[in-house]
Amino acid sequence: MDHSPTDLSNVRRPIAQAHGLPNAHYTDAAVFEEEKHALLFDTWSGLAVAADVPDIGDAVPLSFLGMPLLLVRDRQGTLRVFQNICRHRGMILVSEPRKIEGAIRCPYHSWCYSTDGKLVSTPHVGGPGQNKHDGIDRALLGLIEVRSHIWMGVVWINVSGTAPAFEDANAELLKRWSEFDKPIFHGGADSCFQLEVNCNWKLAVENYCESYHLPWVHPGLNSYSRLEDHYHIEEKGLFAGQGTHVYRQLKGENGDVFPDFEGLSDTWDTAAEYITAFPNVLLGVHRDHTFAIILEPQGPEKTREHVHLFYTTPDTDDALRQKNAQQWKEVFVEDVFVVEGMQRGRHAVSFDGGRFSPAMDGPTHLFHDWVAGRLNARRQMDQAAE
């Protein structure tokens, strides 16, 4: 396959003339690698949820686009993300979730690290019985930490270390949802699930951004939250999505509902919003709960969706919580055949990226424009460095 850069000029045109991203952006390994850096490593990407490591000493190994990472709650209670490798010979340190009682010990030569990443022990490094050596400066050989930030219960990371501070990069979204800047509580084991989807991760974003498909793909949802009850959310270069004016609270058999967030304005009595924080986190906010879907790209044509539900208190009703999770799962599963169908469609060699409805596809076009803009900027930077 030709690995020269794809032509993105049609993507950045005004929506009425624009085409979608070329097929290679959904099927080609070289383009996937290019996007890995420009779209996911250079920005603030979603990795996990803070609830994965609730207690001091909790450690969870993760893989992010092939990179081995370790999520740790250190002795001070701070959540940290490290590259999950020993600084000696690059051995994987932690291979399964566990509690770190003492230090993080490498299983290869027993080098040990504290939960805040300091190298604290190097047995026999200077010869038998000699645990120090002038050539090994422990102060310089701590675990490699990845920049991280917690917002909406999600652990966001910036692998490259070059993105603006999270609060600056996402200032507009934080301002838009400032009323939800309150403690939220993960619903627990029955409030998270995963979906394995045979599509490129960007198709999941594109589908989530728009409400155009509701009448045909989500007839149940559309029966009360109709197409005409929705509005577009478009912040160029930052985020896109849609909202509804008719959010209907879930009720239990006795008419009970989840407690609301305190101090919300009247808007949220009936409204709800669904936004993709570029690149890979799909967020939903409602008066009584929020959710986050972290898209884990697993190659050009495979994505794992990690779905997590959050509430206003740590002790919500079990049956209602399970009903809510089941209801959302049904909605998200309804989308699978669409994104997988579009993925198969990207193997039609004469497909030109498709077109956008100027009236209905604004949020999706905005995402394509963001992708093309980031890739162009990265290409220019790479050219300048040559």
Rank of each mutant, 00 (worst) to 15 (best):
L282I: 03
W328G: 11
G243D: 07
T162M: 08
D229G: 13
Q322E: 09
E172M: 13
Q76W: 08
E35H: 12
D369H: 10
D317A: 09
A272P: 02
E273R: 09
F261H: 13
H365A: 04
F351L: 14
L93D: 01
L173R: 10
G161Y: 08
D317P: 00
L21K: 09
K132D: 08
V120A: 10
V331L: 14
T276P: 05
L264T: 07
V333Y: 08
W111M: 13
D116T: 10
P259S: 09
D361T: 07
F185A: 02
R344A: 13
A29G: 09
E273P: 09
H218G: 00
T43N: 06
P61N: 04
E273V: 07
R147D: 05
G20M: 11
E235C: 09
H3R: 06
N254W: 06
P279Y: 00
H218M: 03
A50N: 09
Q194R: 10
L119K: 14
T303H: 02
M360F: 06
V11M: 08
L250Y: 08
T312R: 07
G373K: 14
L71F: 08
T364I: 03
N84I: 00
I15K: 12
D134M: 08
L39G: 01
A59W: 02
A384K: 14
L143D: 00
D134R: 15
E196Y: 11
A50V: 02
I275C: 05
M67V: 13
A29K: 15
D42C: 08
G255W: 11
G153F: 02
G153A: 05
S95V: 11
R105K: 15
Q83K: 14
G153W: 02
P279C: 04
P215N: 04
A50T: 10
D181Y: 13
G299S: 11
D335L: 02
A272N: 04
P279N: 02
I233Y: 12
N23V: 12
N158A: 11
K302R: 15
V349H: 13
A377P: 05
E101A: 15
V197F: 01
E234N: 15
Q76P: 04
T364F: 02
Y108K: 06
N254A: 14
L173K: 08
A372L: 07
A18Q: 08
R89Y: 15
D58F: 12
Y224D: 08
A139T: 06
I294C: 12
V339G: 01
V333T: 13
E34A: 13
V333A: 11
A325Q: 06
Q83I: 11
G284K: 00
N376L: 02
G161S: 09
H218Q: 03
G57R: 12
L203Q: 03
L70A: 12
C112S: 15
Q194K: 12
H368P: 01
T43W: 03
F239M: 15
N131E: 14
V197H: 03
G161F: 11
D2R: 11
